[in-house]
Design a protein around this nucleic acid. Structure first.
Length: 609
DNA sequence: CCTGCCTGCCC
DNA sequence: ATTCTGC
DNA sequence: GCAGAATGGGCAGGCAGG
């Protein structure tokens, strides 16, 4: 029953030990395999805050608005009371649990089953069009009115797909593999079974496809039973972060590897499937189907493919491109997403390819990058300005100057930096050293792919900003202020002008310091603006007295529809500036608040980009 | 039909 | 996306 | 080092309400 599942969630939440999480889930899934196999797939999806595989539509369209209405209708919680409770708990499930009242209904309640809850979530997701908000609300009310008190917390958390149990996809996969070993009484160690299941899932991320095969035939036959498939996206391989070119090179020096360096374009990652009938699917980094967004890419792919190419899965970066220049990520974002037709395209794009994972019926995942790259080149013909290969050079760790120069060029060409990829698997003869794999490893972040991004490097520009306000944190940050509103200084007007919120880079110890310093009741904080020197278009829950300076790092300066900093100084627009990827670096105790970065400085940084 | 809020998803 | 935390 | 969690700017799409 759903109550049992909620008890499992409670147990998971009560400990942070990963071993405990695994034991709890392994036992539970084992029991389901024996007594309630129909609930396995729903449990796998719900436990991982999803309702289906990522490449199918899987959002609920339920947010704070509908939740607020539901809490009001179910338990009579007013919106003022909701705000209070939310500030206190920082979790919608905890708020619902605290608000629970036995419904006065004379109708007999029927206990919730796992499949009933899951089916209802699916129906909520399918509900759309005029009146859909009320229809979704009705589904929610139906579940809530039949729920026991202990089910309320996780029901509401599932409505917003944020369970916060501490166990997600990797834990579920591990536990599923272990449970299948126990269930099938296989004479096998857990670890190879876990690896077999994960390998399968990462190249075919569908519990719907995998779980029935796992339960019937065990994890080891998945390699044959559940192979890479066209129009089912695999999880992309990821790159490890490095600090700068020299740190990256010193990592590779240990292995004496030869590698390729590629421009890291600032666009959207795309995985493109072509089948023998000429059907093309395009998937995003998170495996959303975005085929409808790029009819121009589809038509160019069909033109570019070599006569000998029947089918493939290739990967690249789609970049906004106006025929001669690469445009910013922000320009790409403004492109239409649904029902795009070839004659209605307003933002031109170019595709820069860098990998191929499947060709003419065969998986290439186990081929080294050097071979894959050759096959990629042979599988299609470049169409200049439409479909090209990423800009790249091959190098070894001795070529520091060459690589550094290439990195600088990439930044000048409006890229984020470079990707560095090992071309051939390094034969490991030295004991204790992990192999450096040149194969395509879905979902893995290995040292055989490394990122060097311009904003990671030490010389990257930073801003000195003044904190001017905050909100209540959620979840694990519920006891602290998060995010925090930051401002730059406008000396002309003698004002601190909001420029972005920030929630990254703070340690727990620093959060505690802030909680003490900006405690409610102190002179440092108020629900009303404390200082007439503060200007913000965005109203924080609490205003802070401007009194300290923090250094922050960022990816880019963006033109903002919301923030007004520098608005008079940005050409051709009345919009201000803001910050992409802001994160806290350190306090600047040596600076007074009027020594903070000025609006002019921000505008200069923007113009320099 | 238009506007503004909400939501999900790209980075 | 970035970053921190516990295991 | 893995796995999970919190949440940044900013966009289109979609719904509600005038």
């Amino acid at each position: 029953s759903y109550l049992t599942l909620c008890q499992v969630f409670d147990q998971l939440q009560s400990t942070k030990s990963r071993n405990c999480h695994l034991n709890i889930l392994t036992n539970f899934l084992h029991i389901l395999m024996k007594h309630d196999p129909d609930s396995l797939i729903p449990v796998a999806y719900m436990s991982t805050n999803t309702i289906g595989p990522p490449y199918l539509k899987s959002d609920l369209g339920v947010g704070s608005n509908i939740i607020s209405k539901a809490l009001n209708r179910c338990f009579g919680v007013s919106s003022t009371r909701l705000k209070e409770l939310y500030a206190q708990h920082g979790d919608i499930g905890d708020v619902a649990y605290a608000s629970f009242r036995q419904p006065a209904s004379i109708f007999k309640r029927s206990p919730l089953s796992i499949t009933k809850v899951y089916q209802t979530l699916l129906r909520i997701s399918e509900t759309q069009g005029s009146g859909s908000q009320n229809a979704k609300l009705d589904y929610i009310l139906n579940l809530v009115s039949n729920a026991k008190h202990d089910e309320i917390r996780y029901l509401f958390r599932s409505f917003v797909l944020n369970l916060r149990t501490g166990a997600m996809t990797n834990t579920i996969l591990t536990a599923l593999a272990r449970a299948s070993i126990l269930f099938l009484h296989l004479e096998a160690e857990f670890e190879p079974a876990e690896n077999a299941l994960k390998e399968c899932y990462f190249r075919r991320p569908s519990f719907t496809d995998i779980i029935p095969l796992l339960v019937d035939f065990g994890p080891f036959s998945l390699t044959d039973n559940c192979p890479l498939a066209l129009h089912v996206p695999l999880k992309p391989m990821l790159g490890a972060n490095t600090k700068d070119v020299s740190q990256m090179l010193s990592l590779l020096k240990n292995h004496e590897a030869s590698f390729t360096c590629e421009y890291k374009y600032d666009g959207q990652r795309a995985q493109i499937h072509l089948d023998a009938q000429g059907n093309v699917s395009i998937f995003s980094r998170n495996l959303d189907n975005m085929t409808a967004k790029y009819p121009d890419i589809i038509s160019e792919i069909l033109k570019a493919k070599s006569p000998s190419t029947e089918s493939f899965i290739v990967e690249g970066e789609i970049v906004a491109y106006d025929g001669s220049d690469i445009n910013t990520f922000q320009v790409l974002s403004s492109r239409k997403r649904a029902n795009v037709s070839l004659d209605s395209i307003t933002v031109g794009v170019s595709l820069f390819l860098f990998d191929i994972m499947y060709l003419n019926g065969s998986s290439l995942l186990n081929q080294p990058l050097r071979s894959r790259r050759d096959l990629l080149k042979g599988s299609l013909d470049v169409v200049p300005g439409k479909i090209e290969l990423v800009q790249s050079i091959d190098a070894t760790a001795d070529d520091e100057d060459l690589v550094y120069e290439f990195f600088q060029e990439s930044v000048k060409s409006k890229c984020e930096g470079i990707m560095v990829k090992v071309l051939d698997t390094v034969d490991v003869r030295m004991a204790g050293r992990a192999p450096l794999l040149a194969t395509y490893e879905p979902n893995k972040r290995l040292e055989s792919w490394m990122k060097v991004k311009k904003d990671y490097v030490l010389e990257a520009d930073t801003l000195d900003v003044v904190p001017i306000g905050c909100w209540h944190g959620n979840g694990r940050k519920a006891r602290w202020w998060s995010p925090i509103l930051l401002a730059v200084y406008d000396p002309e007007e003698d004002k601190f002008v909001a420029v972005c919120k920030c929630m990254s880079g703070f340690t727990d110890a620093f959060y505690q310091e802030l909680a003490d310093k900006y405690a409610i009741g102190s002179d440092n904080i108020s629900t009303q603006p404390i200082s007439d020197q503060v200007y913000t278009p965005l109203q924080p829950s609490y205003y802070w007295k401007p009194q300290e300076v923090w250094e922050i790092k960022f990816g880019d300066i963006t033109v903002s529809p919301l923030y007004t900093a520098g608005s008079a100084l940005v050409d051709g627009t009345d919009r201000g500036l803001s910050i992409r990827f802001p994160r806290f670096i350190r306090k600047r105790a040596d600076k007074g608040i009027t020594d903070a970065s000025t609006v002019d400085f921000l505008v200069d940084l923007y113009k320099k980009q």
